[in-house]
């Protein structure tokens, strides 16, 4: 019996969310009084994982796993779970992993819960807290099957340093045939995606038009943040659909969410509620966002935002 943490990689390096997955899994393993095995695909240097408690690493190297295929990856992870006799599998909530997780749960006949935000509150019955109703509520859920899959919501647990020596072992799974062909992939290069970002700077209709987005972009660049927007902004074509956040758009689980010229409608808040700290900049003190935020500035975005950016530049320097 062990805990299996699957962490994603990109171009030979583990993705940033790996450290949170390993931190969580290592605490879970302690709670279950068992070992942690961390599975990685096509990563050269695994040393960064030691810091968070990855005591045993199962390393797969195979160029056929360079591009993602949900069914193939689910099958590889299932083989790793069986080989290591793992009854608890921990996954991230990236788009690819959420795509793959249900397929893995069928392969292992496992119960799967997504959007998990904490360690289990009880081991028997295995009870764990997750978000539901698009972050408007939490739910304690049990997993009743022997094998359990936990999809951890991003930034829900944080990082926990726990230096260990890692034992690295090679693993050679057999690969099933791919049924889905990738014709092309388009990544917006040089931009931080909302899913990967610690900080998100988001603009609403209060910005009046796409030509004013430079103030959002400069603030985001200064903070190393991703940019996002409210629904009407993407509906009007001011910004791409991929930036639309909220209940019917993307969820944002960042450490810091800065909302500029966004009123704070219930559908918008639902999607960003699980962000840790929320800052609102709005010229209407009655805007509902002030009820949902940690910090607020009542003021004109066109005045406040450029000055804030200048001050942050000085602060960072």
């Amino acid at each position: 019996m062990s805990v299996l943490a699957y962490v994603e990689s990109f171009k030979g390096k583990v993705k940033k969310n790996a450290f949170e997955i390993v931190s969580y899994s290592s605490e879970l393993a302690k709670k279950l009084d068992t070992d942690l095995v961390t599975l990685i695909l096509n990563v050269n240097d695994t040393s960064e994982l030691n810091k968070y408690g990855a005591s045993k690493i199962l390393k797969v190297t195979n160029p056929n796993l360079d591009s993602f295929d949900a069914k193939l990856f689910a099958n590889v992870i299932a083989q790793a779970a069986k080989t290591t006799n793992s009854n608890h599998i921990v996954l991230s909530s990236s788009l690819n992993t959420k795509y793959m997780a249900p397929l893995l749960s069928i392969e292992l006949d496992a119960g799967y819960l997504s959007n998990v935000v904490e360690l289990p509150s009880s081991l028997s019955p295995f009870t764990i807290k997750r978000t539901s109703f698009t972050n408007k509520a939490f739910c304690d859920s049990t997993i009743d099957s022997e094998v359990k899959i936990i999809g951890l919501s991003s930034n829900a647990f944080g990082l926990l340093e726990n230096n260990t020596e890692s034992l690295v072992e090679d693993f050679n799974p057999s690969l099933i045939e791919k049924k889905i062909t990738i014709n092309s992939t388009e990544k917006v290069s040089g931009k931080i995606s909302i899913a990967d970002a610690d900080i998100v700077v988001s603009g609403g209709r209060g910005l009046k038009g796409p030509e004013n987005w430079n103030i959002i972009e400069e603030l985001a660049e200064t903070l190393g943040a991703a940019t996002a927007c409210s629904k009407p902004v993407s509906d009007m074509g001011w910004r791409p659909h991929s930036e639309h956040v909220g209940q019917t758009g993307k969820p944002v689980a960042a450490n810091l969410y800065i909302a500029i010229g966004i009123s704070g409608a219930i559908q918008h808040l639902a999607g960003i509620n699980s962000s840790k700290i929320k800052v609102v900049i709005n010229n209407d003190p009655e805007a509902p966002f002030f009820k949902a935020a940690d910090y607020g500035v009542v003021g004109d975005a066109f005045d406040v935002v450029p000055r804030l950016t200048e001050k942050l530049k000085a602060f960072k320097a």
């Binding site: 799967y112 500035v297 001050k311």
Partner: peptide, 27 residues
């Protein structure tokens, strides 16, 4: 394979801390 056993709403939040637009250093 799973059951939802109890629901709850997020804790009521603390009041927002307002910062004056003339004092962004405080933010």
């Amino acid at each position: 394979k799973t059951k939802s056993i109890k629901f709850y709403k997020p804790d009521p939040r603390e009041e927002v801390k307002l910062v004056s637009p003339d004092n962004l250093d405080q933010l």
